[in-house]
Design a protein around this nucleic acid. Sequence first.
DNA 1: GCCAACGTTGGC
DNA 2: GCCAACGTTGGC
Length: 157
Amino acid sequence: MRRFWLMKSEPDEVSIDDALAAPSRTISWFGVRNYQARNFMRDQMQEGDGVLFYHSSCAVPGIAGLAQVASKPYADKTQFDRKSPYYDPKSTPDAPRWIAIDVRAEKAFPVITLAELKAEPGLSDMRVLARGNRLSITPVTAAEFRLITSRLVKGRK
DNA sequence: GCCAACGTTGGC
DNA sequence: GCCAACGTTGGC
């Protein structure tokens, strides 16, 4: 069954335009260091799942593009790299603790802002809008995904 | 830069 | 297993 996700990235690190400019428009989503988000990647995300590409910690936070999950989960190699900010001394190649997944960008559009998302009655239960939410990967329901892609994305560019 | 909210760590 | 202290996230 195809699932849907919202994935947060800081555009200063990797923006939707960076992803579109990458070879095969595909980037490795590494650096996740939260167990809940990791478990989504490890246990639930599948190739072809729909992704809302969200820009966070920036001037205009919100959904900036659409993408797809493009690989199975695999060990995030930055966890073994002593020079990486994502290095985890407690992880070993035999039992990798952290996982990455490939994401293929589809399109970018003017950001659907947080204010717009909050103003949409059909999105009132969206996980990413929940108070105090900090998860970098959150599940999106099929209805939410459909509403966003068919109503908010359409006619935006 | 502030600060609320949350996750993780580690002493006990 | 509890929980205080600390670190991080992320909107504003």
